[in-house]
Design a protein around this nucleic acid. Structure first.
Lengths: 194, 194, 194, 194
DNA sequence: TATGAATGAGACTTCATTCAT
DNA sequence: AATGAATGAAGTCTCATTCAT
């Protein structure tokens, strides 16, 4: 893909995200998207093979951004517990920022009966966090009797789902910081080596 | 609603669940549903105001079944850790049994931009498990420094999401029993009073 | 099919024939047809599964009319040579009357890569004429050394194609009656028992 | 047209014939053709003014090939009945070889509502065969009471349509040789001077 | 209460053609 | 002469919903 065509791809993707976030996937027509992107109807199909192919593209885009942010705020020098705290906070932040996109990814991936794709898209993030956990085990910050793969995914899902319940499900049983603190404590009690 | 009309309501709902589970919400037409239910096109609208009104009805139906099963397997005499084990197992079982319905609830609720409804539908289940936790605190089986509401939801979501990743996301990093065991241990380490 | 729905089927078919005859198959949209038939867009699809399904229906309709006319003008008392003369004349008449429909059948069946259907549709007409020939053999009006099936089809095609060249191909190397006479003589010389 | 541009014209035409033969005229896009020809989208329009202009070009190409073959197999020394036999056989051969192209010519010419063009394209072939017939009359091989023009066309159409019914319509009431023999006999009985 | 034919808006997608490079 | 990205009109078909019976 040339630089110019990549630009157009991004332009379409951005327009799609914006429109679909507002109106929902099913209520958005290609016509809406191209109008918003300022291109012709047919041009859309030069960059995406179909309407439904937008969803994985959007999901991918979302995780890329999220993951970038994680890597940005977390330093290699941070202890595991600092990392955890930062990851929780960042998860809440990105969930708030991108809640509409998250919703459409849920619906989209569900629509396409392709929940498996989540796993593929999440792979780099899982891997990154797995390494943090392995390091923490090595540094004896956390116990070594866990299944690292499973625990990684449990933690990430715990953070994400709680944040989603808070921002998307509008579940407000406590303040945001208390939510974050409660997750942190829950995990710390479970994994701490001391 | 008379008994007879309730029967027809159920007949339509069952047909809807079956067809939508197979084909997905968007690919299912009212025509498909009424054919499967053996009624006329117009009759559908005597029982449901619209196609989209099926989704909350189905979600409600799903939670009702799940919750019934929970209450059935769990005895009041069970210790909290027995309860937890049973609840985890039952969650995995129902997730496997109803994975198609779960998917359609995800997509459906997302479609309707009404994730909040989940919370309402889940209310009775949350409440029931909250009581179990409060009892466990009282019996000094688990620590008393937690936020009960938040912890309840975290646990339930932890179980459900892991089960969904396993059965729907086809994530198979370990055997099913190991998944269940890992969740159990994770929670136990975090909450156990000893 | 009830009487009323049969009426609507015919109404659509007539509208389709008329519009497609004028504009050609490819240049005709369903929208044109339903407008001409005075029905709603969707109604079309209650009676025909697709646009292309019109073609066999039209072809069938055409042959039905043609065949009816043949049976009407030809009497059981007619000698074979009278029958032949009448069939040639009728072929020319119907070709002139329905030349637009004939064109669309050609294009349509060709488009659908389903030339074989012609044979099926023509079956009753072929059969009827075959019997005439068999009778003529029995009555020793024509020779008995021919392959009846093949000869039947050759004769019918000879008549039809010549008529089509005359009316559709606008080939006017002679007067219409001369064309008819030439076909008649050609066949008579070939088959006459004397 | 320079030699080089003629080559490219042919390349496009060949590609068009091949692709349209496979997929049918309507299902073939210019995009398919240029891909197959290995040229750019816009280049097509340097050699053909429009998609539909391909059809007469293809038809012309088809008849050129067919006619070349006829002239090749038929010798000036052949008696009329030898010529007839050879022409019938060749007609069957080319019909088999080019059945897809024939179909597309039918549909194409019909699409364009320009059946008359057939006559123009066929002109040289008609003329050639007419001369054969005139010669046969002169040599008293066949009777002289026929209309040469009309009879020529009847014979050619008889051969072609029978071959088309056999190879395209998949009408198999007898073996191929029997079909050819039956046509031959039919014509011979009709025209033979003895 | 039940029916099911009719509606008609609107969606996705294709593709012949153009034109700036 | 050649390219190929962009255009945007147009087409087929679906389907939730209505309403006369």
């Amino acid at each position: 893909m040339t630089k110019k065509s990549e630009e157009k791809y991004d332009k379409i993707l951005q327009a799609a995200i914006q429109v679909i976030s507002e109106k929902g996937y099913e209520n958005t027509s290609i016509s809406d998207i191209v109008k918003s992107a300022g291109i012709a109807q047919g041009t859309f199909y030069l960059y995406f093979p179909s309407k439904s192919s937008l969803i994985p593209a959007i999901a991918d885009h979302l995780l890329t951004i999220t993951f970038e942010k994680m890597k940005l705020v977390v330093s290699d020098q941070d202890s595991f517990w600092i990392v955890l705290e930062k990851v929780i906070r960042t998860t809440f932040e990105t969930t708030e920022d991108f809640k509409d996109i998250i919703i459409l990814c849920y619906s989209g991936l569900a629509i396409e009966h392709s929940m498996e794709k989540w796993e593929i898209i999440y792979q780099p993030f899982y891997q990154w966090f797995e390494e943090k956990i392995n390091l923490a085990i090595k540094h004896q910050e956390i116990i070594d009797t866990i299944d690292v793969k499973l625990t990684t995914k449990m933690i990430i899902n715990l953070m994400e789902n709680t944040a989603e319940r808070y921002f998307i499900g509008k579940e407000h049983d406590a303040l945001e910081e208390e939510y974050q603190k409660e997750i942190y404590n829950f995990i710390k009690r479970s994994l701490s080596a001391f």
